[in-house]
Design a binder for these strands. Structure first.
Lengths: 228, 228
DNA sequence: GCACGTATCTAAGCGGTGTCAAGATCATCT
DNA sequence: AGATGATCTTGACACCGCTTAGATACGTGC
């Protein structure tokens, strides 16, 4: 494409406001968005944070992106695929948070706990996003691709277990440990907000301390061995 | 009320077919149902089992019960309240399954594992119901009343821990242990179907053995103590 | 520099949903 | 018998996911 034909929809670069164009006067709105799929995902996350997962409709996302209700169908097969794209972003960010937590831990045993804490903290800070993330996974009964990639939570747990002395050839033991760790983190993530636990949280000095206590209580890789 | 005024809508007792009346000729259908709220919950469970949680709409429930779309609003404030009623039934049944599993265990340590297995088995056999159960709990960030009642999962875990020697006065330790157990069971319940775990399940001889292995791996109350 | 194919978007509409307001019907109490 | 309150229906509204048909703009080939 020649530079002479610079298209006017780039006057406001799409990344500047996350793809929102609804504020523009109608006749200044370009027919082609330019980067709609990314803008739709961004709009989805905004709605998610502002109004919760139940408000996340395809039409609302299109509205937020300043586009007709049918436009998203040219970028996503259906609503589920859009949600999966939003969820994928979440899994990536969760993976990054976990990597950071692991890097800051002094030894593998501590790393396992810190990974769990980072997991729960992420889920508690982004509850709507976390629900979307898990819903698409549970529906398909598969771990999301972004969650089992190398630089993801799952991978970091595996590496940490090996660093802590576990034999990577013992696939069964590795898997059982990873599953146990993952399940506990997921459970804590979904239940940590329950009002019944407020007293304990206060006694321990806040929710993060509470989470740490629960995870340590389970004690994945804390030196104990199983009676089997 | 006098017995002389026996109402004709009792000709077919509501429990006989679970409240379904759609099969009756239209002009034989009584204007008043007689036991609609119970029938609606029963209809909800039928739809849940037959078509999954996404098909569980208020209108579908009303249809299944042979009643107009607005009728449920005279018995439930909104859709959420109907779902909560369905969920409550689920929590009761889960409590019963847990009680049974606990009763069949030789000692407290085994009981904890069996309780967990019963929990996961229930969730895996009634996946749609289980999702409804947890959704209404997570939305309100409270344990469902039916789940924390005396003869419920939560109560049975507590009693088992005490029977195993834990000091009930140590509220914090009790709660942390219960939470850890509950979280693990919930996590396993939601992830046990993941395709990635198929090999391990086969190696262990089925899904129930797999669940047992994971739960034992966490080892709530299996004689080990925490490094804390 | 222009035409054409294709990607992108809009408009209109279908059947479905949750929810509400108004009216019909029935059980019961006086 | 008449009034009252509970229960159910009818009809409507706004929103939803999704489809089809047509409009528009981009970029490539000439």
């Amino acid at each position: 494409m020649t530079q002479s034909a610079v298209s006017f929809q780039r006057v406001v670069p799409p990344s500047a406001d996350g793809g929102r164009k609804a504020a523009l006067p109608i006749d200044e709105r370009p027919y082609h968005h330019g980067d709609l799929s990314r803008a739709l995902v961004a709009a989805g996350r905004r709605i998610l944070e502002a109004e919760g997962p139940d408000a996340l409709s395809l039409r609302a996302v299109a509205r937020e992106a300043g586009v007709s209700p049918a436009a998203p169908y040219h970028h996503f097969k259906d609503k589920g695929e859009l949600l999966a794209a939003v969820a994928a972003e979440g899994w990536d960010e969760l993976g990054a948070a976990i990597a950071k937590a692991r890097a800051g831990a002094p030894d593998p045993a501590a790393a396992i706990t810190e990974i769990g804490v980072a997991y729960v903290v992420f889920a508690r800070r982004n509850p709507a996003l976390y629900r979307i993330m898990y819903r698409s996974a549970c529906d398909k009964e598969t771990m999301p691709d972004h969650a089992k990639a190398e630089d993801s939570g799952w991978g970091h747990v595996a590496e940490t277990l090996v660093a802590g002395g576990m034999d990577p050839a013992d696939v069964q033991e590795m898997l059982l440990t990873q599953i146990a760790a993952w399940c506990t983190a997921h459970g804590v993530a979904e239940m940590a907000g329950f009002k019944e636990f407020e007293p304990v949280k206060e006694a321990l000095g806040g929710e993060e301390a509470f989470v740490r206590a629960v995870l340590r209580h389970v004690g994945i890789m804390s030196g104990r061995r199983n009676a089997n």
